[in-house]
Nucleic acid binder design. Structure first.
Lengths: 260, 260
DNA sequence: TCAATCTACGTACGTCGTACGGAGTTGCAC
DNA sequence: GTGCAACTCCGTACGACGTACGTAGATTGA
């Protein structure tokens, strides 16, 4: 990663004053490069976004990319922020915080579904760009006025977003594993059952055997991303409810400000 | 990733019958190779575990590694399972499920702290090895007898482990970013404040400004991994409590079996 | 007009995982 | 006892990758 200031300038390029350009005009724009990179990543995954491949798609020489972007890492940062900027931000309509937060989670999940390569990117790392900032502002609305202090608001949002990212990554890992081994979960199990059943003896691992079998049967696989997401989100919202509706359950109005 | 059966045999190598070996004996063992790889990863990170570097540490030629391990991906799978196998599994002493589950989370977090490169590894993907199986068996104990059905037990454990991994990864990302930019968070902010404060105007992003400032001030950084972990874990346990202690709050004894 | 400054890009370096094939070693079948 | 199959080890080499460096040519402010 190069100079972080350079990355910041890249992220905020639209709102920054254009400085006097002496030489020839650039044939493309940073935005065009980034859009092409996103398209490529959507189609073939993040690994397919090599400087050579991207340059090929754009009809320029590989090294010409470096006039637009300091390097591959920064390119990915900008791709991420661009996606953040593009997320729909409809007015949060739900009156209760729980539905609002659920909508935030679903929107984020949808982003990961639409762009699976996002799971391969660290979303905490990149410097604050316009997309991320707008997203943060918008998503905080879901927690406004519920009685959490500012620090708790930030913690709660980070918590929810972290969960969504984590479950998206798990889903992506599973997809990748399936692709690599070129078989469905069923076929995989069939191929390896002989060895596994020999090892996985119910006497040494009684609980694992019982619970694992039940879970496998219920989901049709060792891991079910959709179920994990649904289950986790419920727990998370329940957990936040305990924090928010502090003055004892049974009340639907927001609690008072809570000190951590 | 190569043949998954090959990986399985590698993982379970200790419990598998040794087949007749025709050629010369191997100078090393798979375990020695894996241990060296873990040591190297601990010291210099996962990226430093290249086949050449590892071979160098072991005093063999790079290509000789492939007699022990089918490839780098499988090596990492075995490293992971080895670490799982090595985790301390003291008898869970706490009588309440909450402390037991908290201990599981802490133990996992400690593993990520001791081996930061784990955050760079997908922990869902690898085939079931002896370490993972033993770990699963052990950790399920924390949820035995609390009144969750088998499927919910699995979901709850997956949920908690996913959270720990996710927060470890966030911590690792932050560490990496700090290393790359070669500055502390304070220095970074100082270097970029001019640009950022110009963009981050309090009028366009009032909530982000207020909440972001408060969180930043409280944690001394934009993101505080320790706080995120503590906050998240509380919420998660509260959320699971809602599921477990179903027949309404105020009761400390476990609820009846819960149907999802 | 001309020097400063910029774009575009060709070449090349150092890195990686690992395919391939050969040389040497061992133990089983006969 | 002998031969050969099966094994270990490893040197070489290939095809990726990101990108440093330097140059040629276009553009424009002074």
């Amino acid at each position: 990663m190069g100079d972080p200031t350079r990355t910041l300038e890249l992220l905020w390029r639209e709102s920054l004053p254009v400085k006097a350009q002496r030489g020839p005009k650039q044939a493309l724009t940073v935005t065009a490069v980034v859009d092409a990179a996103v398209t490529l990543a959507d189609a073939e995954g993040l690994d397919a976004v090599t400087m050579r491949a991207l340059a090929g798609k754009l009809g320029i020489a590989p090294m010409a990319l470096y006039t637009y972007v300091p390097g591959r890492a920064e390119l990915i940062d900008v791709m991420l922020d661009t996606l953040y900027a593009s997320m729909a931000r409809r007015k949060p309509k739900a009156r209760d915080w729980r539905s609002r937060l659920e909508a935030v989670a679903h929107d984020n999940r949808a982003l990961f579904t639409a762009h699976p390569w996002l799971a391969d990117v660290s979303t905490t790392r990149p410097p604050l760009g316009p997309g991320q900032l707008a997203k943060y502002e918008y998503e905080l609305q879901a927690l406004e006025g519920v009685g959490l202090d500012d620090v708790a608001q930030d913690s709660a949002l980070t918590f929810v977003l972290g969960f969504v990212e984590s479950s998206a990554r798990a889903a992506s890992d599973q997809r990748a594993a399936r692709l690599e081994s070129r078989m469905s979960d069923g076929a995989w199990w069939e191929a390896n059952a002989p060895l596994l059943t020999r090892m996985f003896d119910a006497e040494r691992y009684p609980t694992a055997f019982r619970v694992g079998s039940a879970a496998g049967a219920a989901h049709g696989a060792a891991y079910d991303p959709d179920h994990a997401y649904a289950f986790g989100l419920e727990r998370i919202l329940d957990g936040l409810a305990v924090l928010i509706e502090k003055p004892r359950a049974a009340s639907k109005r927001p609690g008072r400000r809570v000190r951590k």
